[in-house]
Design a protein around this nucleic acid. Structure first.
Lengths: 336, 336
DNA sequence: GTGAAAGCGCTAACAG
DNA sequence: CTGTTAGCGCTTTCAC
């Protein structure tokens, strides 16, 4: 004899009353609740989430889908989501696409989402039409964090605007020779962020009548190593920029290392700005446009949880705030 | 009418046959399997994990408990575990203790493990007696990765030995003034790794008759920032070491930055070695003792999965391999 | 405030 | 190879 039943037998109550008592329903006498609880502890009772899930249709779990896991932004968001979920007694199921196109299919069409979650948070993903349709048929609350996602509710900073502002900051310091280190999609991974940030950069230049130079446009894959290599390549080109806009702090760090390796000084010879607000930035003196992905994660979780609790869905979310942190990595353009 | 039942009705088969067909059981006619599959697709059938979980007693999910999420090692392990789990069609439920003592109680005693997982992977945790007892009563396969865990099966490198070897490497280069940057537990987090690595360091020194100097023993909290600050403090002390052993690469990176900030050269003035094999190390030229946490995660998942598949449990796991990567951050002690 | 009974969607004997 | 019959452990009407 197992579970709730056992407690019922031991207390002389019915299964239903035990079930109610365990959930603290108001219709149960306080004394009964106490008694049930005590017995439950005594018997080492562990509720079966499968059983209650089957009965209620809810899993008390939220899924988080990440394109890859090993990136500062995703980790931070995960922290935030986790914290809020934990508070509410929800579990977090992690789906890592791992950059593999094959797994994508698995997540969106197949068993992975087999009614295992009550809501879904997707990180920086753009969907194919049929993927969106799948999401819609699943019917549970969904939210995208990071990068606009056509057709799905989205939360995050305005990537285009931030990139543009960052570039304009450099322009304001007198720089005209500005390099860009950004990213490009890995196979099968659709992310809007790199494109948005690149566009903001390009438009800022255009407004000032500056032609972008292809040899100053590096692909840093949004990673430290990538940023380093991209910067090294830019420095190896015929002419040297006086500033570099890195579309993420991790790439900016890589760039900083590459610049130092080349024997150049920051910011005297070369200015660097990033986007993100990565913790290393403080030590490295990186001037950056900082966002708070932990809070974004928390917020997303709260929105979803509220809807699961019956609140009406919010159709639109304001862009997340960005804070400019001026440190030492960017300075006036060297006077020619 | 829902689920499997619906398919049964539409195909004229019985629920059981449909259930079998969906699971590709060999006892089903191939033609039937095809027919069932087609109908399932057509109806957009999504299996209910709760229902099958209730019926089988299995959740097809594995839990991973991390002390904090934002650390290179844990992320890497998570990648590995995830990859292997995904391959086997298992889901990964992430439990982040978040450094909070309170959440610990939740994980081990309360609802968190409410029969939601079939197996458990714990990262770098040491348990209280009653926690271990709880784990035992749960009865499902459990494994600890990183740091010895008394009473529970454990997988990982030999932290003591690696630390000792690393220190001996420095001694072999002629260094006698060697600093240590390690970690100490945050409130409520029990991790054996910092202690093990510190001991290895201390014993290596002792063997050579060298007295450890307290002002050269920094707490870097196993983070970049921590490593930086610890190193800065050491450099600010009255006398300067000629080498530093950082118990993790992330701390080593912080130390490297601090050393450069102090205007010192690596390795001419100061040698640095780390442990881990963090990807940044290549760019930064860090000499380190590298482990492969992704593979550790994969391996752990495979072990657990095998046991869930009915294989006899393996009581003991060999230490994971460590590879020495000699780069440029360590050199001979400056001749006094 | 508590109990009885039905059922959530699937799997697992046991027959045939 | 397929169908029948019971549950898995909990929640939820509907009574009392």
């Amino acid at each position: 004899m197992n579970g709730i039943q056992e407690i019922a037998a031991a207390t002389g109550l019915s299964k239903s009353t035990v079930s109610r008592a365990l959930r603290n329903l108001p219709s149960v006498a306080p004394s009964t609740i106490m008694a049930v609880r005590r017995k439950a502890d005594e018997l080492g009772y562990i509720p079966s989430s499968a059983a209650s899930g089957l009965a209620t249709g809810r899993t008390r779990a939220v899924g988080v889908v990440v394109p890859v896991i090993d990136r500062w932004f995703y980790i931070q968001v995960l922290e935030g989501v986790d914290a809020e979920l934990r508070r509410a007694g929800y579990d977090l199921i992690l789906f890592n696409l791992g950059g593999l196109a094959g797994d994508r299919e698995r997540v969106f069409h197949r068993s992975i989402l087999r009614k295992r979650v009550d809501a879904l948070i997707l990180l920086s993903l753009v969907f194919e039409d049929d993927e969106r349709r799948q999401l819609e048929t699943m019917e549970y609350p969904t939210l995208v964090i990071g990068g606009p996602a056509p057709g799905v509710r989205h939360l995050g900073i305005d990537d285009y605007a931030v990139a543009r502002t960052a570039t304009e900051y450099l322009l304001g310091l007198g720089h005209r020779a500005i390099a860009h280190i950004g990213g490009q999609d890995r196979e099968g991974l659709n992310t809007a962020v790199p494109g948005e940030r690149h566009e903001g950069f390009a438009d800022a230049l255009a407004t000032h009548g500056i032609e972008p130079r292809p040899e100053w446009d590096g692909n840093g894959a949004f990673s430290f190593q990538g940023g380093h290599d991209a910067m090294a390549r830019i420095l190896a080109s015929d002419s040297r920029p006086t500033a570099v806009f890195a579309a993420s702090d991790e790439m900016a760090f890589g760039a900083i290392v590459a610049i130092r390796e080349a024997g150049l000084r920051i910011p005297e010879d070369l200015s660097v700005v990033g986007i993100d607000g990565h913790a290393y930035g403080e030590v490295l003196g990186l001037t950056t446009f900082s966002q708070d992905p932990v809070e974004q994660g928390r917020f997303a979780a709260r929105v979803l949880l509220a809807e699961l609790a019956g609140q009406p869905p919010v159709p639109w979310l304001d862009p997340a705030p960005v804070r400019f942190i001026e440190r030492t990595s960017a300075g006036p353009a060297p006077s020619a």
